[in-house]
Structure formats: structure tokens, C-alpha cells
Write a protein that binds this DNA or RNA. Structure first.
Lengths: 156, 156
DNA sequence: CTGACTGCAAAAGGTTTGCAAAAAG
DNA sequence: CTTTTTGCAAACCTTTTGCAGTCAG
């Protein structure tokens, strides 16, 4: 489904008229290494290696990297969006509301569903953006109960 | 639809030890009427009917209503979460990245997928939280092809 | 050399919090 | 009457923006 298997990250930038800078390299690396992280986390990661990269630069860079198609973002929590490398085209996020763990789900397992939506409402799903909330296997066992309304521990 | 003006919304509150106040009634009504809205929108809706309800009260009330199980929220856009009544538990949001339209998808169409996840990774999906991003039928036609990388400001 | 990119600092949203007054039960 | 809830305003946090200097091409 993809002609250019893995184009160099910097070519992706140049191809779109953007310049390649050390800051952009650092931010992209951070996103790739963290697997998924908020702007702040990414900023932290970058800072832990080199100093001198500004927070606003991180924000601007994330935007650029996303425009170029190197990364995407999803909304996992309230405040901040979560960015992740786009490499694994079709992977979906499974977010556990209990332990907050975020696991990836192979595109394979989602395909039938995606195709069904393509058919019926004619909706084209953007897998990179898909974050499914719920409870993971581990937590389901631990907490026993399931669909009950919980009044303690709000958040999420 | 509802011959019974107030099904049990206030009982839900009392049952959990919360007090029933006009502000809470207004906020709950607003959420129900708007179908889905951000805190601000809800605040606006409430204000358009009565004045004297503070924004912070709206925030606190949304939290309470969610704790009690009357409403839920999803993350549709960057900034603010979107709240909606919990009545239609099993409906999923289809968010078009082009026209920003938000359509509901019946639980029926999602069930096979949900059950599949229950089986394999043992993940219990929380339907109320599910927001699927992509492109709706209408926009798919209009904009022609899709998967191309867009470098012009595409927000979200 | 030129225009895109960065850093800095200040602005802008959106959400939360402390407190005293008002209201619910 | 007691305890929760509200309004108000200030505090907070996260994200955005204007500018001038710097750097990639």
C-alpha cells in the first residue's frame, strides 16, 4: 500500500520545502523513541539529551513533522495530545482507563471494522488518530466488576 | 420521546449523595439539548436561557454529572473535551477531519469489532469514549483523492 | 546572500482553586 | 442547622505569537 517504503525522515522535510535542522532531528527522534508522548514529554526527552531547544520550537516542530506526514497525534487524555511516529501505518491505540497503559493493535485486527465503515456510512477511518478507551485484560481481572458506574476516581 | 419530563436525572444525583440544584439541572439540560458540546458551548447554551451561572460552576457540574453517570466526554478536538448525555450509551462518534461534522454510529455496527477486541487482546471497549476520526462520505467525494500529504495548514 | 527557523518573552486560551456567601436537605 | 454548592477572582497550565537574531541551503 505504500510505494516508498521508508523514506528518509529528512527527505520528507526537504521534499515539502522545509529545512532540516538539528532541532527537528531531535524532536523527531524523541517522538520515535518515546513511542508516544505529549509535547511536554517530548520536550523533556529532547532536553535530557541536549539543552537549548525551546518549548515553542517543539510545538512548532511537531506541527511541521505532522504536516510532512512523519508523525501524527491522538487525544488520549484531557489536556495534551499524544504524538507518535507514523511508521507503523495502521496501528490503533488501546488506552486502559484503569492503568493508563497504551497498547498498539495491529491494523489486521481492525481491518474488517474499517472496511465495514467504508461500506456503510462511507466513512474513511484515519487509523493513526484512533484511540480506543476501555479496560485492558489485566485490569478487568483485577478490578473484577466491569460496566458499573464508578463514582470514585474520575479523571481519565 | 420523553413523556416523563425528568426521567430520573435528579435521582441519580441524590443517590450518590449530591444535591440537586437549578444550576445542575440547567447544565444537564444543555448537554442533552446540544447533543455534544464543549464546556464553553455548554456554558453558552446555559447562559442563553438564564444568567447567573458561572463558568467554573459549569466545569464543576460537568464533573459531577459525569461521576454520577449521567454524561460522558470524548476528545474530539485539540483543546476541549466534548460532553454528551449517556442515554445513548452505545453510540460512536464519527468525526470528519474535513467538515468537522460529528455523526453517530449505532452500536450495532460496532458490536462485531468490540466483541473481537474482547476476545483477542481481552480489551473491553468503552463505547461512550470512542471517537473515530477520518473523512465522511461527502467530503471524500468533494476532495477527490485523499491519502496525499497536505502541507497547507490542516489543523487538528 | 536570503528566507526559513529558533529563542525569548509576553499573550492567549482553557481549566482549576480558595473563600465567603447562599442554598439544599 | 449543617454541609454542599455557587460566584468571583486570581492562579495555573498549556499552546500560540511577534520579533529580531541565526542558520540552512
Amino acid at each position: 500500500m505504500n510505494d516508498n517504503a521508508t523514506p528518509r525522515w529528512d527527505d520528507q522535510l526537504r521534499a515539502n520545502g522545509y529545512r532540516v535542522t538539528p532541532q527537528r532531528h531531535l524532536v523527531f527522534q524523541a517522538v520515535a523513541e518515546l513511542h508516544h508522548g505529549t509535547p511536554e514529554e517530548i520536550y523533556g526527552h529532547v532536553h535530557s539529551q541536549v539543552e537549548g531547544v525551546n518549548l515553542s520550537t517543539v510545538y512548532r516542530t511537531l506541527e511541521v513533522l505532522e504536516n510532512v506526514g512523519l508523525i501524527t497525534h491522538t487525544h488520549i487524555e484531557h489536556g495534551s495530545p499524544t504524538y507518535h511516529e507514523v511508521q507503523s501505518q495502521g496501528h490503533v491505540h488501546l488506552v486502559c482507563r484503569q492503568c493508563k497503559a497504551v497498547n498498539a493493535l495491529a491494523a489486521e485486527q481492525v481491518r474488517p471494522f474499517v472496511e465495514a465503515l467504508q461500506q456503510d456510512p462511507g466513512f474513511t477511518v484515519d487509523l493513526g488518530h484512533l484511540a480506543i478507551h476501555g479496560m485492558c485484560a489485566g485490569c478487568s481481572e483485577t478490578s473484577g466488576v466491569a460496566v458499573a458506574i464508578r463514582k470514585d476516581h474520575t479523571d481519565e
